[in-house]
Design a protein around this nucleic acid. Structure first.
Length: 475
RNA sequence: GGUCCCAUCGUCUAGAGGCCCAGGACAUAGCCCUCUCAAGGCUAAGACACGGGUUCGAAUCCCGUUGGGACUACCA
């Protein structure tokens, strides 16, 4: 009987939930769900000067939007300072940690000197065997790393990684102001929270041997580790604002579906044969570290956009109708609080979803269905609303007005007969009508468009288009 | 500088010694469909970083080189 899987996502609230953090959270979430384990959220806010409550909220909001719900937490490390201090005291009593009276300035100076003379900038251990306190200095607490031997990290993704202990610094675990530091709190919390698998970014691999020594000093079992490859920007440097939007919620704003982002993120580093699109259930079922890659991946917004368009195409229009509502308001297509008939909206979306890559785009193309009036694109107007089309438009208007049936099929018959009568191509009529009804030259099939716009608005817009055309013979 | 990690088309990746003169997806180009724009279909171009081994045989194993990244804080 193996113990229950427990994993955690442990962001520090010094910014919004970003792409890299979201991917780490996602892999934790999938691993937990796959194994019927627990997914825990822990806020690592021991750096009080950089952490804010606002960012804690932002992180929770981002995870909620992505549907990465946790089973326990959020826990905050600032609520647990007493716990950390008791562990520190224990280590000091047992001689596994010691007071260090070197000031930050001295340390900085020594490091600078070491670097300048090409030496390793390592703590020289001068307080390691101190017997007496140094008066006038408030000490920090350092953890004793064994001077020799090796530490082996057995990583689920990297395999066996060996570190020489003499390369490892005696790290500070309690600052002179009495607050604990990351490498210590992470171990204490993972122990207290009974974390079985530590799944985190590659950037923590080098911290792992130090943490292993802390586990050992405390006498606890060492969890399994899985270090995920990084996500980089287009220039192969760490993903940052320079590469465009990095905050997860920015993708909400841009009209992305959370499942599309999740699908994109999971394929950065993980694969399942040639499959590209996965439902949430499939992800949970298929996810394993066996097919997580080792190499860093470059974030590619184009592929994310494609995936988003796929998710929009395959989402039920009723669902898209709900999702697009805030964007209709934001794009000022409907007023705040204004409602819209969802059945009609869904039908409109049926025609639009395969040409919308984002909800923002979808909202904007819905504009000509919803608005009372359309504005013409100048180039389109000049090209298609002219003397040649005027006659056709007049005839169409009259036909439509005189025929009670306004269905897709009825419209097709009307169009065909006008086209045949004048010996022109369908497009010679369809394009001017398209401009008259939508204001532009791109839209779904013209019969569908008219059907959704409705007879009344269609006639009104045709009338307006006809009037717009200045006829040189009758100025 | 030291330590550690990594290396297949522009990008994400498949590939567990012969199935690979390397497969899929995005992006790009062309064609088809067509009332426009999409979607869809078909096709094209495009990669095993380099050099040594091991082996009958290497993208796959080993070593080196090069390149990239991370860490080297009283940040996380």
């Amino acid at each position: 009987m193996t113990e229950k899987v427990r994993v955690r996502f442990a962001p520090s609230p010094t910014g919004h939930l970003h792409i890299g953090g979201a991917r780490t959270a996602l892999f934790n979430y999938l691993f937990a769900r796959h194994n019927n384990g627990a997914f825990i959220l822990r806020i690592e806010d021991t750096d009080r000067s950089r952490s804010t409550d606002e960012y804690i909220e932002a992180i929770i909001e981002g995870m909620k939007w992505l549907g990465l719900d946790c089973d326990e937490g959020p826990f905050r490390q600032t609520d647990r300072f007493d716990v950390y201090r008791s562990y520190v005291d224990r280590l000091v009593k047992e001689g596994k940690a010691y007071y260090c009276y070197c000031s930050s300035e001295e340390l900085e100076e020594r490091r600078r000197l070491a670097l300048a003379t090409g030496k390793m900038p390592k703590y020289d251990g001068r307080c390691r065997n101190l017997k007496e306190p140094v008066p006038g200095e408030i000490p920090a607490v350092r953890f004793k790393i064994p001077l020799e031997g090796q530490t082996i990290v057995d990583d689920l993704i990297r395999g066996t990684v060996v570190f020489e202990n003499n390369q490892l610094d005696d790290l500070i675990i309690l600052r002179s102001d009495g607050t604990p530091t990351y490498n210590f709190t992470v171990v204490v919390d993972d122990v207290d929270m009974k974390i079985t698998h530590v799944i985190r970014g590659d950037d923590h691999l080098n911290n792992t041997p130090k943490q292993i020594h802390i586990y050992k000093a405390l006498g606890y079992n060492i969890p399994k580790f899985a270090h995920l490859p990084m996500i980089l920007g287009s220039d192969k440097t760490r993903l940052s604002k320079r590469h465009g939007a990095t905050s997860v919620m920015a993708y909400y704003e841009m009209g992305y579906l959370p499942d599309a982002l999740v699908n994109y993120l999971v394929r950065l580093g993980w694969s399942y044969g040639d499959q590209e699109v996965f439902s949430r259930e499939e992800l949970i079922k298929c996810f394993s570290f066996d097919n997580v890659g080792k190499a860093a991946a470059i974030f590619n917004p184009e592929k994310l956009l494609w995936l988003n368009s796929q998710y929009i195409i395959h989402s039920p229009s009723e669902r898209l109708a709900e999702l697009v509502m805030p964007f209709l308001v934001k794009e000022k297509i409907i007023g705040e609080g204004q409602d819209i008939d969802r059945k009609w909206l869904s039908k409109a979306i049926d025609t639009l979803k395969e040409r919308s890559k984002t909800l923002v785009q979808l909202a904007n193309t819905l504009r000509y269905y919803i608005a009372e009036e359309v504005e013409y694109n100048e180039k389109a107007k000049d090209k298609f609303l002219n003397e040649k089309s005027r006659e056709l438009l007049i005839e169409l208007k009259n036909s439509i007005a005189s025929v009670p049936d306004f269905s897709h099929q009825a419209l097709e018959i009307i169009f065909k007969s006008i086209v045949e009568k004048h010996g022109v191509k369908l497009k010679d009529l369809a394009q001017p009508v398209r401009v008259a009804i939508t204001g532009g030259t791109e839209s779904p099939g013209i019969f569908e468009v008219l059907e959704i716009v409705g007879k009344e608005k269609t006639l009104r817009r045709l009338e307006k288009a006809i009037k717009t055309i200045v006829c040189p013979h009758f100025p």
